[in-house]
Design a protein around this nucleic acid. Structure first.
Length: 380
RNA sequence: GUGGAUAUGGCGCAGUUGGCUAGCGCGCCAGAUUGUGGCUCUGGAGGCCAAGGGUUCGAGUCCCUUUAUCCACC
């Protein structure tokens, strides 16, 4: 892997990352395909049409269904889903804490029940690495605990300390797995994850600790889970400077278009969020003038595309009225068109942000974009 | 024509021995959703109970008439 910073503008950066699965130009928005499919009937072939660079899959979900052994036998998740670009797999840590019930956290890992059939599952750093190795992603994420951003200090400090110990075990295990002859991707990279809720001293200390492990990239986790936007930006201001300047920074699970622009300004390279796809499925679509809810009656006879001049597969051919009808009729095509539009919107925005940084006009771009986004319709 | 049944917001229904501002589901209108259970949740509008008359302190609930619909029979 080779990571090169092409240009800096303040703390914002445009970089190029060369991986075994292709080149990634940052800032980049990764498109979330939890179970090796973008929800909303969108395939990896469609992703090419909306400008996707990196696809994101989930360790936990693919482990419970269809099973990582099966994915490995099918040649890894990239071959399985026919995606030839880079893939990042989330470790499953977040799911363990967000949707599993009856979980028990121990030093060795987490015991919990499957959300599909309730069966008992154990996942620790080694298991997560083994599963991600089977999936054969380009980038594997460390198995961490994601404490609530409003958790008490007494809970967060020991949790973060354990996440650090888990990270060391993740690193050792992945190094071992990458040397196995039958490993799908022997060049698989591990990104560490910074935690610490909204306690900047814990965040900073943790960042300093994990950077010593000299990993190829670092993520900031545990944000956008209940705290205010201002708090999130403050934590980024405090934390990012303590992560390696010459390595990619990934802000996990974020966010709205505005969140992403603010993150870019603070030196973040990678983003991912369920918003474009989940909102798309719910008929909420992004435009340069705000967010529209296509379920609203005002679009019943609206002949315009979602956004004039947009080159996405939905806007090229279909009207708001038609898409609204499809959504109301619960036709899959309605969701699909909205999801494609939103992914296109996000991918295009980070692409524009990169060009702006390269031309040293990001701050102007950001201000104008935010003004536009808040012009009319729903503020984003 | 005869006998029976039913008529409650857009649709389907609840409404106790007649008792406070008539409820529910769906639909409709709007909102929430940040390392995704196509889920879920939260608000809101909309009926004066087929029409008319009567009994009663009080009727969607009881009585009469009319109208409409459905079923059976002739």
């Amino acid at each position: 892997m080779k990571y090169t910073i092409d240009k800096n503008e303040g703390r914002a950066k445009a970089a190029t990352m060369e991986t075994v699965h292709g080149v990634i130009h940052t800032p980049v928005f990764m498109n979330v395909g939890t179970v090796a499919a973008i929800k909303g009937a969108v395939s990896s072939v469609d992703l090419k049409d909306v400008g996707t660079q990196v696809e994101l899959c989930n360790t936990y979900h693919l482990h419970v269904r269809p099973g990582d052994e099966i994915v490995k036998k099918m040649g890894g998740v990239r071959k399985f889903m026919h995606w030839d670009g880079p893939v990042l797999t989330d470790s499953g840590g977040f799911q363990v804490f967000s949707l599993a019930s009856l979980r028990k956290i121990k030093e060795e890992g987490v015991y919990f029940n499957s959300h599909i059939d309730g069966r008992k599952i154990f996942m620790g750093p080694e298991q997560s690495m083994q599963i991600q190795s089977h999936l054969g992603s380009t980038i594997a994420m460390a198995f961490d605990e994601c404490p609530s951003s409003v958790a008490e200090r007494d809970y967060v400090a020991p949790s973060v300390a354990r996440t650090t110990r888990w990270l060391k075990r993740c690193k050792e295990e992945l190094e071992r797995l990458n040397q196995q002859p039958d490993t799908v991707n022997q060049e698989q990279m591990l990104f560490g994850i910074n935690q610490g809720a909204c306690f900047e001293d814990i965040r900073i200390e943790h960042a300093e600790e994990i950077r010593e492990l000299d990993l190829p990239g670092y993520a900031i986790g545990g944000l956008a889970v209940g705290e205010t936007h201002e708090e999130m930006y403050r934590i980024l201001d405090e934390t990012v400077p303590h992560l390696p300047a010459d390595k990619p920074v990934y802000l996990m699970g974020v966010g709205t278009p505005a969140n992403i622009l603010e993150g870019i300004e603070r030196g973040v390279d990678f983003f991912d969020c369920v918003y474009p796809s989940r909102n798309g499925r719910h008929g909420h679509v992004y435009t340069n003038h705000g967010k529209l809810n296509l379920f609203n009656a005002q679009y019943e006879l609206d002949e315009r595309p979602i956004e004039e001049g947009c080159g996405c597969p939905a806007c090229r051919y279909f009207s708001r009225a038609y898409i609204r009808h499809l959504l109301k009729a619960k036709e899959m095509l309605g969701m699909r068109l909205c999801v494609l539009h939103n992914l296109y919107f996000y991918n295009k925005m980070v692409c524009e942000a990169r060009e702006a940084i390269l031309e040293n006009r990001f701050s102007v771009y950001k201000r104008e974009k935010l003004n536009g986004l808040n012009q009319e319709g729903e503020k984003i």
